[in-house]
Every structure is written in C-alpha cells, then in structure tokens.
Design a protein around this nucleic acid. Sequence first.
DNA 1: CTGTTAGCGCCTTCAT
DNA 2: ATGAAGGCGCTAACAG
Lengths: 334, 334
Amino acid sequence: MATIYEVSKAAGVSLATVSRVMNGNSKVSERTRNKVLKAMDELGYRPNAIAQSLASNRTNSVGLLVSELHGSFFGDLMSTVEKELRADGKHVIITAGHSDEAREKEAIEFLKSRRCDALILHAEAVCDDYLRELNESGVSLVLVNRMVPGMEQQCFVLDNEAGGYLATKAAIDAGHRDIGYISGPQSKEDARQRLAGHVRALREAGLNTENALVYQGDYHESEGANGFKQLWQQHPGFSALICANDEMASGAMTAAREEGINVPEQLSVVGFDDVLFARYLHPRLTTVDNPVSAMGLMAARWVLHNVYKKKLSGVIKNVFLPELISRDSLGTHL
Amino acid sequence: MATIYEVSKAAGVSLATVSRVMNGNSKVSERTRNKVLKAMDELGYRPNAIAQSLASNRTNSVGLLVSELHGSFFGDLMSTVEKELRADGKHVIITAGHSDEAREKEAIEFLKSRRCDALILHAEAVCDDYLRELNESGVSLVLVNRMVPGMEQQCFVLDNEAGGYLATKAAIDAGHRDIGYISGPQSKEDARQRLAGHVRALREAGLNTENALVYQGDYHESEGANGFKQLWQQHPGFSALICANDEMASGAMTAAREEGINVPEQLSVVGFDDVLFARYLHPRLTTVDNPVSAMGLMAARWVLHNVYKKKLSGVIKNVFLPELISRDSLGTHL
DNA sequence: CTGTTAGCGCCTTCAT
DNA sequence: ATGAAGGCGCTAACAG
C-alpha cells in the first residue's frame, strides 16, 4: 500500500500538499493538483483511514447500538441509518446489546474505544442516569425509541401511548365491547405506554377497566399463544384481542385457529409495529405502524448536522405519531 | 481521555511498561503490573484503538459485506458473525452492496480503507476474477454463499442443486406428478442450481422435463403471485408448486387463495430458505432449510483461525447440505 | 500557494 | 524486567 510520502515523492511536492489535495479544503494550484492526482492514480494510492483518524481526531464512523442484529425492526433501523450516513462518506459500526444491561454497557464502551464520532443508541437496559452521564461526558449521542428527560432534542421516539389508544379505539369503533389485551413486559417503558393507551381508550368508551382482560406477555410469539389461551379460559367469547406487538398477535391467531376460532369472524386481532411479516399472516394483520425507518433517518440526520456540521435537509422531528394500518384481522362486531 | 503517557507518569514507570501490561505478552513483575493496573483504573484509562491499530498494523476489525441490512437472511448472517467475532474482541464493520456491482466494489474499497484485518463477503454482483484478484492482492477474505474456483477453502456455500432436488423430490414422493416451478432470476448462480435440482428430480421420476411448467421470477413476493397466475392459466389444475424461495411461495399462496384454491388440499406449495416468516404463513410453509447461520459461523471461525491464529474449535466445513423442513403446505396427492 | 515541523497515542526493537 | 527512542501514515499550524 502506497503511503502519502511515496505520493509526494512521485509528484515532486511536499507531503502537506498531497494532504491538501486529498482533503480539498485549502487552495492548491491546478497544475500541482494534477501532478498529485496523477501520482496517486499511478501508485494506486488509498489513504489510510486509521492514520487519518489518529491525526485528525475524527474517525468518520458512527456507532450504532441495536438490541439484536436480526429481526425486521432492527433491520429497518440499521438499513436506514447506514444508507443515510454512507451517502456522506461516514460509516457505521454496529453492535448488539441483547437487551441486557451489562452487554449494552460493554457495547457502548467498545464503540467509545473505537473513537466513534457519534453514537446512535437503541438502548433499553441501561438506566437514564447512565445515558445522561454519557451525554455529559462529551460523546455525541442520540437515542432511538427512548425518551430521557433532559435530552429531549436527542431522542427520537414513537408516541406509544397514542398507538395503544389507536389500536383499541379501532376495535371499539368497529363495535367491540369485550376486548382482551396482551401487553409487553411492564419493565419496558414502551410496553407500559401502549397499555396506558389501551386503558384510556377503554375508559373513554365507558368500558370497565377494573378487572380488565389483560395478560402480560414478553413480546415473543409464544406468549401471544399463552396469553390468548389464558384470557379465553378466563372469559370465553370476548370478541377482540389487542396485542402489544405483531409477534404476539401472530401467536394468538395461531392459538385461536387451533381452538377452531375464526379470525376475524369470531375474534378480531390487532397488532402493533407493522413488522414485515404482518402482511404475510393470514388473515393479513391489522396493526399500528411503528415508523422505525423515519426515526432512524432523523437520528442519522441529527448526527450529520450536529457532529459533521452538514446543513439540514428537512426538519428534525423528535416525536412520531403512529397510524393504524387497516388490513383484514379486525372485523366489525354488531 | 487519559493516554498511555499519563498512566505511565501516574504509575511511575515507562510508557513501554504500560504497553506491556496492556498486551500481556512480555513479562512484567507482579509489583509493577499492579501499580500500572491501579493507575489505569484511577484514571479511567481506555486504550485508543485507533492508535493501537496504526502502531500495530492490526485493527481487530473485520469487514462484512451483505446485500441488504434488512431481511431475515442477512439478519441471521450478521447476527452469527458478529456474535462469534465479538466473543474474541474483534469487531465487525458492516456494509451493504445492494446486489449492485459498483456498490459492492465501493463497499469493499471502503472496508479496505478502514484496514480491516479480514473481509467476509456476501458478494453477488462482482465477478469471480475480481474476487480472485482481491484474494491475491493480500487481503484475507472468505466468501459466503458463493463458490469461486481456486478459492474453495475460503468459500462457504449451500448445495443449492441438492436443495432444489430435495424440494421437488418431496413433492414427487407425496404423489404429485403435475409440478410447477417458479425459479429465481437465472442470472444468479443459486437460482440456476436450484432449478437444476428440480429438473433432476423430475427426470429421475420419469416426468416430462421438456415443456416443463417453469416460470422465471425474481425472488420477490409479487413474482410468486404472477408466476402462479401464469402457470395456472397455462396448465390449470397442476397439483404442486415448487418455489425457489419463501417470498415467492408466499406470493403464490396468496394468489392461489384469491382464486379460491385451497392450499394444500388442492395445491401443494414448497418454498426454499426457511426464512423466519415461513412458519407464520398459513398454512405453515414446507420448505428447504438454508443454513445461513452455520455458514456465517464457519466464515467467522475461518477468520479467527487463519487471521488471528486462534486454535480451531471444531472442524471447518465448506459445503452445506440442505434439509427439508416439513410443515403443512405440502399435501399428499393420490 | 507550498514546504517544514510537530505531534496524534501506541507498539516495538534495542539497550541496559 | 524495564527504559529510551524511533516509527506507523497522516493532519495542522506556522512560516515563507
């Protein structure tokens, strides 16, 4: 691999001049620039990004922490972020935190040791204080899917409460009165908010929220099935089931079918997230859109603007409102 | 951020000594080692990976090229590779090539400029010669899902022909004689091989392969639907449809349902890949397993062994044999 | 506009 | 076992 020094010799100029034509900031005469370009070309020169980073104290890389590397939710997030950042020559170092506090911290330390210029975090296990400290310690960071008081401008979130409300409201509007709910783990903020939205919709419609039909799941498909079975046993014949995510909705639909219950004729089901496979389900799942890509885009733009001083294209939006995606799994109830 | 120099001062030793305790290779007396450790701890010292890389000419990072950052296939691949490599302190720089030659080359150049110690490539657009040259130019690389003559030891592939055979053979064994096939784009090697396997199974069973029922799709869901419609029009009433991937199988099933055709009672469907949503489909899809994770694991291990000189855990396998995953979409035909 | 000269933070012989 | 010193390849003042 040719170095900048060899290029400078070949072009008969100084080392600094080569550096200048590479970075294109300060002025270089047309003639010398061409000489240098020619030399670079002939030597097949590629700058050593590592050395550049050390000297400039800038790595042109941003760290991205997700919970998992698979799954459509994170796939969309990574995809959007990488695309937006790559378009400006930055690159993304991706790590997984596996929803575990120790591993999330380790992953963040890892990203710091690589001297990322900025961090985009989907952190769900570490506490608010840790994130605030990190923020104040000087690293540029933004948070996806999480709202930390005091860092509002750096947080990109979905209004989960509104989404929960939307899902249940849709069922109520379709005539349902007996509505079950399978929630996410209440240790997670988004799961709590989705449930809160559900309760608000119920209350607003004058429905009983005291001994409501609620089962706490864990966002996995199997708990959707378990939840359905338990709720159905507890109160056979309810007409609609709202699930805090699509995976559990899928599990619930399968379990219902096994019991010989038709969806949506006998039981309506509504999901949340609108993951890729929601439309592959049978019947196609009515669900609430989770604009991951849009949030990822904002996170990337924030970084481009605030860290790399790029001028903004469009406005930065922090809170996203969900939409109902109407498909076939929610039927009307007379 | 504290530097190695500050640590050395705080510990009252030389800079070299600090470096030694960090890397733990050469001997350092117990006492000095402790002094250094203590100083590092008190200063909250974290080595600067960039500087380490520049000095040691090793980045401890491996580049991973995939076609897309989303989708279960690549999700599984990234997930496995990252996990295996992270366990040994290496990190992964992921880029997407979008099945486009120019973008794949650009991504590879990018990875090279970051001085990755090794490359794991899922390259489908660049030609064999390019890959061979890259290989001979000195960068350590392995290929996933692609066999390049002359680099067999660095290729990790599925026997697609065997998979294609397996799928069709299963249908034949279930009594089907009228069998349609929706292939992948014949510009792709794997698609050609899967089709070849299909034809072999047909021929072996003494079935007509001349004017076979074959539609060339593009691996996307919509082409599954189009393919089904066209084949059904061309030859109404065939009893089994083999699709070169699960997405197209899903599209075909949906299209069939819209025509009022029951799966699997009236039409059996078999997919390929066993992507995540295959079991969410209704009926649950019978398909051929594509051991992406296993291939990713091998790729990661090869790198660990050949580049980082780690001793092997288990044996390295280059060619994987597919298995049939029997679920509900393939019925028997009398 | 171009060249000189310090570093960036760390690793690695070579001495001691 | 430990220290001194010279790079790794590049950037960024500072001169000229």
